[in-house]
Every structure is written in C-alpha cells, then in structure tokens.
Computed example of a mutant assay.
Amino acid sequence: IYFCLCGRCRINSVLSLQDHLGVLNEEPVDLQFNHSGYLFLANEKVAHIMEENYNTQRLAGAKVSLLSPTQVKEMFPWINTEGVALASYGLENEGWFDPWTLLNAFKRKAISMGVTQFCGEVTGFKTLTNIMTTVDDEKVGVQRIKSVKVQMPNSLQYQLVDCAVVVNAAGAFSGKLAEMLGIGLGPKDSFSGIPVPVEPRKRYVYVVHCPDGPGLDTPFLIDYSGVYFRREGLGGNYITGVSPEEVEEPDTSDLEVDHQFFQDKVWPKLANRVPAFEKLKVSSAWAGFYDYNTFDQNGIIGMHPLINNMYFATGFSGHGLQHSPAVGRAVAELILDGNFKTLDLSNFGFKRIVEEEPMLERNIV
C-alpha cells in the first residue's frame, strides 16, 4: 500500500469508510478529514491544458469550476493573481486527511479478515525457468517464483516462504526487487534488458507557521510553479513543498531534510503567491520517498511478462494513496479472475513500457 507524504490526494468516499474498513468492537476509523476544495492555478502557457482537464472532469461527473483571476481574487483576497490566466476549483468531495491513519486502517481490516502479517526483508527468490521464443525469435527465460527468502529482523536466519503468487508492492524499491530476478540486467537491446523503471526520489515537506496567513476558507492551492500549500489544523500552520527539477534531484542515500531547498525553491514562490507568507517560520519538516516511475510517472499494474506469477502495483510517483483502493481491487481481480472486472486498467500494464509508449499525465503536483 502506498501513501503520499502530505495526505493531499482528493477523496470522495469518506462517508463509506466505516462500511469497508470498520472492525467489529474497535474504535471507528477517524481520518481527520478536512473538507476543502483544490485550487489549481494556471498561467497563459498551460491554461489550455486546464480547460481540457476541466472538460474531462465534468464529463466524469466531478463538480469543478473554472475561475478567472478576478473571480479568484474575489473568493480569496489574500492571493496575488499576478501571472494567473485561469484557475480550477473543486466544489465538493475534496479535501485532505491523515494518510498514516488510512494505511493502518487498511492493515487492521486485513488482519481482522485473517491476513497474517510478517515484517522482513526479501533477500532472494527460488524460481523455475522455461525458455520461450518471442515473435522476433529471441530466446527468453520466463520464470515462475516458487518461494521467497525473507530475512527476519534481529535474526541471522531467513524464512523460506512458499508461494503461488507474489505481489510486488515494494514502492520505491520495487525495481531493485525485480533485479533480484534478473529483470533489466540482460543485454540492453533484449527483452530481458528492459528494467522495471521505478526508483526512489526524495521529497521534502515543510510545516510553516504564519499567524497572519489565510484562514479557515483556505483551499489546497497548487501554483503553476509547482509549489503547493494547505492549512494544517487551526493554529496558523501550513504544509508546503515543491518537487525539484530533474537536474536537482536530491541524494536518496538518506532522508535528511534540506532546509536550504525551502529557502531557495519554496519560500520565494510561496510568498509571491501569498504575500502574507513573507513572514513565516518553518516549525518542522520531513522527507520521504516517492516510488518514481522514470518512464512516465504513472502506475505500473499487472503481471511482468518474464515472471508469470509476479504482479506489480508500483510506480505511482506520489499518487499512491489516491489510487490504492482501486489498485488493490484491480490486482485482486487479476489474481482471482485473470482479468480486470471493475475498471479496465490494462493501459497501466508493462506493454506500454515494452513498446516505449509512455502514458503521461498533465498537471502533476
């Protein structure tokens, strides 16, 4: 199960949460849901993309509106609309919540239904291999996992877990896990040389305090510069951040927070959009990993063509919490029924990677 760093994902199913994740004789799940719309700002360069996205959302039944800079200023006087050509604002069923609580609610419900949880590190696999011939007459080895070696904490021994199906939901490290099976390690021009294009990318989230900042009507604001912020509680605190440029990706060998990044990349853009934020103080910060799909920043869902019993649910690049309920159901359908039933998510399979046809999303936060 994946979850984003700040709990900023849109959700519209909070009211049915207890029906799905409630456990008999235990306290109800409280996600601390804060109902508030998302406000995306676009400049002249990307305004046409916002209009296209708006039309798609409306066709799907989403309650969103397009606003002019004047309308934005009337609704939220504290926003500097300089450079804004168009805005998109969610009118209902949007907000944020505690991602850690949702993660634990998933786990608690699964355990109540008979799932056994073990915590350990996968160190290897035992497999059987069959040699197959592709349409290009390439000989490839198709593997079937028979068991997984799991190193248990504080132990020199490993557990050998026999299995019929493996789901690779190792997040930022799912690509490395696939390499244990030789995936991506073959010749670059061969089928076996195509890696699982997922790697860890470190992202920072900062909590700032600004007593004179926007009030309770504050939306989740996403600026066209990439900087975002939302209110955190009722005491003048806000969560903010921005994804770095590709050439400035931070080192992933640790989870240390770069506070200079806030000073140089976040604060100037934040204060430009909301002048009140010229006077703020960083009260805390943290870092975490995205399971970043370097191919097209979209999820990879389904079976790997060279491992006939490993299913993948990875590469969501920060959208994992938003997608996790649907993806969990989809993978279960693949395992039990052999195909998708509820939603056809076949476009998210490995075929697009093999055929080098990325499925790019626009307006990614």
Rank of each mutant, 00 (worst) to 15 (best):
V196I: 14
D212I: 06
R203Q: 11
Y238I: 08
F277L: 03
R203I: 07
G215F: 00
L255T: 12
Y224P: 11
K281T: 15
E232Q: 14
V207Q: 15
P244I: 02
S283W: 01
E248D: 15
R201E: 03
V247A: 15
S243I: 05
G215H: 09
G233C: 01
Q263D: 15
V242G: 02
E232M: 05
G236K: 08
E246S: 13
S283E: 15
R230E: 04
V242Y: 01
L234E: 15
N237W: 00
L255C: 08
P268C: 05
K281S: 15
I239C: 04
F261A: 09
Y224W: 09
L221F: 04
P219D: 09
Y238S: 01
R273K: 12
D254H: 11
Q263T: 14
E246N: 07
V282M: 14
D212P: 00
Q263V: 12
P219H: 09
S283F: 00
V282F: 05
P250W: 00
P268D: 05
V227L: 10
V274Q: 02
V205A: 14
E249M: 12
V266H: 03
F220W: 04
R231S: 01
E256C: 07
P268F: 03
R203A: 10
V208H: 09
E245D: 13
P200Y: 08
D258Y: 00
T252M: 02
I222C: 11
G235S: 11
E256S: 13
C210N: 06
C210T: 05
I222R: 06
Q263S: 12
V282T: 12
P195H: 09
P200F: 07
E232Y: 12
D217Y: 01
H259A: 06
K202T: 07
Y224A: 08
S283N: 09
K281P: 02
P244Y: 02
E232V: 02
Y206W: 11
R231K: 14
V196A: 06
P250E: 04
H209K: 15
D251R: 02
L221D: 00
E278K: 13
P219F: 04
T218V: 00
S284A: 10
P200E: 09
S225R: 08
D251K: 04
L270C: 08
S284W: 08
G233R: 11
S284R: 14
G226K: 11
D254P: 03
I222Y: 04
V242W: 00
V274R: 06
K269S: 14
V208S: 10
V242R: 14
K269N: 12
K265T: 00
Y238N: 08
K279C: 03
L234S: 08
E245M: 13
P219E: 07
R230G: 07
C210S: 13
V282E: 13
F277N: 01
I222Q: 13
L216A: 11
G236D: 02
E278F: 03
V196T: 14
P244C: 09
W267M: 13
N237H: 15
K279I: 01
E249K: 15
D251E: 10
V266S: 03
E232A: 04
G233L: 08
